[in-house]
Amino acid sequence: MLGRNAGGLFWLFRFMERAENTARLIDAGFRLSLARPDDGQGDWESILKTTSSLQSYLELHDEVESNAAVNFLLRDKNNPSSVMSVMSSARDNARMVRTALTQEVWEAVNDGWLTVKDLLSRAVRPADLLAALSTIRQQSAIVRAALHGTMLRNDIYDFCRLGTYLERADNTARIVDVKYYVLLPSVSHVGSVLDNAQWESILRSASASRSFRWLNGGDINPRTVAEFLILDRQLPRSLAFSTAKLSTNLEYLVEQYGERVPSADLARGYDVRLRAMSIEDIFENGLHEFIQGFIQDINTLGNQVEQDFRFYG
């Protein structure tokens, strides 16, 4: 397979994952802002931070405001991380790697892009927002289904999965990073209504709200939420799960190519380290520091994958 195509597949699925995650963040932010007397200004600010787009937002708007933030995150062409921008990039990559995709996957991506483009051609009114977000998530789900249902399980598939999990690990880590202060066990926070809403919102952003309850019953507190998002081995969006998958997929590539690559060793190292960690260790050494380190590691891994498989040269 061409190195450029491997890169195209990787980015196609990074962008698809990003679109879905941004939609989920907006969903969580919107619900939270409805419960706030101040329109949830602080919440939108942290969502903009999570998607690394606060600065570009402030270049265009004087203040953080719910409706403007939603549209900036959803459809602003000046925001390279907006759902629309990211879907366009995903489709450009899919066009580039068209020969590596099954017809079903290509059509799912193209259909998704056409649907979302139409959906976001005008500003989205609050009354239509949740339905629009749900459509975006569905389009992403259809692409994933086409991938699972029709693609050969070979290197092509592995590069798709690497893109998905790398992006997901990074996104979940950013959610935790921006909100780490509410996840710190501090006496004054515990049990207040406001913080329950915050935690709920964090779980929602990672599509983990229902599974959290299912596993933990009503026992919602910072320690269990952080543990769930970071270390849970069943939650498909946790850091531990994503890291394990990154390692597995790299091992598949090593097996298919018959050659060990540095990125596989890196991922295996991260996986082993996370498996040995408890949430107490993490809190003791600093949640913030841990997350910062994790985001850095994931970034390093991405660069190594890019080199090992000759995405660009």
Partner: peptide
Amino acid sequence: GAELVEGSDIRVVDGRVAMRTTRG
């Protein structure tokens, strides 16, 4: 069932025109 290449994917290597794959 052919590769779709761009100029940046190919170069001359050992007297042949070659494409950059994930394995060289």
